[in-house]
Write a protein that binds this DNA or RNA. Structure first.
Lengths: 84, 84
DNA sequence: AAATCATTTCGATATTTGTCGAAATATAAA
DNA sequence: TTTATATTTCGACAAATATCGAAATGATTT
């Protein structure tokens, strides 16, 4: 839970999730959407993966990232419990 | 949005929300639940209030904090949109 | 095999953040 | 009007974090 909220606590990481909602993308394509260096994006992707918010699959020299919504359900459950 | 996720990115602050779910409490009573100093809890409460996750009302020398769930809806909306 | 491309790792740095004790503020009680 | 109680503000510090350029790794192409 801790690591999920940590992963969500960054505008770039949240935007990455929104981008991946549309379609899976390579690390490079994701990086092109932002004004920060590739190492930085790589680090953000690593945090998102640690939180299981994204998953990655190697395709040749590319790494394709995709959104993983199963953890989103857990957060929503926690939030819903706050309202009950 | 940024400040809400920042506020949620701390185990103590999340536990404060869970405690306030049961009943409104004074700053001191909240502080007694944790192993950190009162200034620290006061700071956490300040962040939660900035995010509008709690509201505070002064009652004599006490300050009573209460949970505010309206912002929770916004987070859930953002999360739900991720799944659609 | 050498050169190129995609991605990550490394080392360093500036900023943010959680925490503390002491001091300040505000209300209540004696 | 002192004294006590509740809470916040202040100043400082250590740990965590986002970012960068350079180097390393892994895969493709020539």
């Amino acid at each position: 839970m801790n690591i999920v909220f940590k992963a969500l606590n960054d505008p770039i990481r949240r935007e990455i999730l929104e981008i991946l909602k549309e379609r899976d993308m390579t690390a490079g394509d994701i990086s092109d959407r932002f004004d920060v260096g590739k190492p930085t994006i790589s680090h953000h992707l690593d945090l998102l993966r640690q939180a299981h918010l994204v998953s990655s699959a190697k395709d040749g020299q590319f790494v394709i990232y995709s959104l993983n919504t199963t953890v989103v359900d857990e957060i929503m459950k926690w939030l819903l419990d706050l309202k009950k």
